[in-house]
């Protein structure tokens, strides 16, 4: 029996297997960035309030 050529499916499979966690990590990056911005803003506001 010949081995079928399924290389394209292999590529697709690993594109998904690496792509999905990549997107998930990207969402973390955005979340972290927004939080850090908020944190800085809050800290400056806090400092102004003290003055």
């Amino acid at each position: 029996m010949d081995t079928p050529d399924t290389f394209n499916y292999l590529l697709l499979g690993y594109a998904v297997l690496f792509g999905l966690p990549f997107l998930y990590l990207l969402s973390w990056w955005f979340r972290r960035r927004n939080l850090q911005r908020d944190l800085e803003l809050l800290q400056t506001l806090n400092d102004e309030q003290k003055k």
């Binding site: 081995t3 050529d5 399924t6 290389f7 499916y9 292999l10 499979g13 690993y14 297997l17």
Partner: peptide, 16 residues
Amino acid sequence: PTEVTMGAVQRVFYFH
């Protein structure tokens, strides 16, 4: 190694 009956796509199996 490459699996004989399914070909390259069988490598998806490990991470799956």
